[in-house]
């Protein structure tokens, strides 16, 4: 896990899934989600996968897919801080 993200002790919502399963989880379970392009960066982590890729917002937290080369994709929740405003300023849902 990215050292910055790891230091934030993220809540693991889904573990060792496929990037498609992570996409579906966010779409189905998070009311507010935003489409981002592959490579979009949150803290020190790139969002990896084939579009569409989603980042969710739940209260003050961000929910997003985190892909590890050896262990598949995790859906993690971390405090959003200024990243939420950056997401909401983008086009789309």
């Amino acid at each position: 896990m990215g050292s910055c993200l790891e230091a934030m002790k993220p809540e693991i919502i889904l573990s060792q899934a496929s990037f498609k399963e992570a996409r579906e989880y966010i779409k189905k379970n998070v009311r507010e989600y935003h489409e981002v392009e592959p490579g979009y960066k949150i803290h020190d982590v790139h969002i990896i996968g084939v579009p569409p890729l989603y980042v969710g917002v739940e209260g003050e937290d961000l929910i997003f897919p985190y892909t590890k080369p050896c262990h598949g994709t995790f859906v993690v929740k971390v405090p959003g801080s200024e990243d939420i405003a950056r997401l909401r300023a983008r086009k789309g849902k």
């Binding site: 490579g39 790139h46 084939v50 080369p69």
Partner: peptide, 15 residues
């Protein structure tokens, strides 16, 4: 050789 590899390749195709 796994799903993560597909995800990384898809990212490269885009960026």
């Amino acid at each position: 050789h796994n799903d993560s590899g597909i995800a990384y390749a898809g990212t490269m195709a885009y960026i």
